[in-house]
């Protein structure tokens, strides 16, 4: 079977399709036989415990790692806005907030690395979107976790992507911070019409925002649309019979007995 990540002219409203994909590192299999697709205008959550391979899936989409079996088809020239897991970044670099957001424009730099006035405009709009324009000259490393996260989101927005990939954007944030980030992502999806894939290990954080969920458990993945996850004891089967999803004030909540 083909083992590759290929760019095609497919796929109608599909942007990315996984066909029997296995992923891993140096002989170690992390995920097996993934079959799902990401459609235009999807708001997809990828959920699973620490170390199950969520980041690995994103890396296979960006092309950093290739499948050890199966194939990933990806719509040609799809612009991916990648919001990397914040903890992966090294604070030794003395960037200002603006420096970081400008990186989203580096693929179209002019001679001698100059930014055009359009680039600068897009950078400022992106900073507006995450409400950090007033802090653009502040050192990036001096920000709080939530602010850093918003800067990274602004950087991805400045790239003017069609698909946003966000890796654990609410990690290490308090509840207010979580909500702020999730509202921002919600807005990016609904107002800007971007396709969004968000990775999290906490179901309750993304439950009320995403429209589809990809559950990862024991090297496998199952896709469900959000209004079907309460049916036929799906969640209880996945997490054990003590976990349920209920509704409080019109919102879904995760109940662990």
């Amino acid at each position: 079977m083909a083992r590759e990540r290929k760019e095609t002219f497919i796929l109608g409203k599909e942007l990315i399709r996984f066909n029997g994909v296995s992923l891993g590192y140096a002989g170690k299999v992390v995920l097996e036989n993934l079959n799902f697709s990401i459609d235009e205008n999807d708001f997809l959550g990828i959920i699973g415990p620490n170390g199950c391979g969520k980041t690995t899936i994103l890396r296979s989409i960006t092309g950093r790692i290739s499948p050890s079996a199966g194939s990933i088809e990806i719509s040609r020239k799809l612009r991916l806005g990648y919001v990397i897991q914040r903890q992966f970044l090294d604070e030794i670099f003395p960037f200002s907030v603006r420096d970081v957001v400008e990186m989203g424009r580096y693929d179209r730099l002019g001679l001698f690395g100059r930014l055009s006035s359009e680039d600068r405009e897009v950078v400022e709009e992106s900073l507006d979107m995450v409400e950090l324009r007033h802090m653009m000259n502040v050192p990036f490393r001096s920000l709080s976790g939530g602010q850093k996260q918003r800067v990274l989101i602004a950087r991805a927005l400045a790239f003017q992507p069609e698909l946003m990939l966000l890796d654990e954007p609410t990690n290490d944030l308090d509840i207010a911070g979580e909500n702020k980030i999730m509202d921002l992502i919600h807005e990016i999806h609904h107002k800007k019409g971007l396709t969004v894939v968000i990775v999290s290990h906490l179901l309750h954080v993304i439950l009320n925002h995403v429209e589809k969920l990809l559950f990862i458990q024991d090297h496998r993945a199952v896709m469900r649309s959000i209004d079907k996850i309460t049916e036929d004891g799906f969640i209880s089967e996945l997490y054990g019979s003590r976990v349920k999803i209920g509704t409080v004030g019109g919102k879904k909540v995760v109940i662990a007995e």
Binding site: G63, L80, Y82, I84, D90, F93, M103, Y106
Partner: peptide
């Protein structure tokens, strides 16, 4: 600028062209 970007965050740089 590109040298600095790929030193800081090669994964994102690669994704963003």
């Amino acid at each position: 600028k590109k040298f600095i970007f790929v030193s800081f965050d090669p994964e994102t740089a690669n994704t963003m062209g």
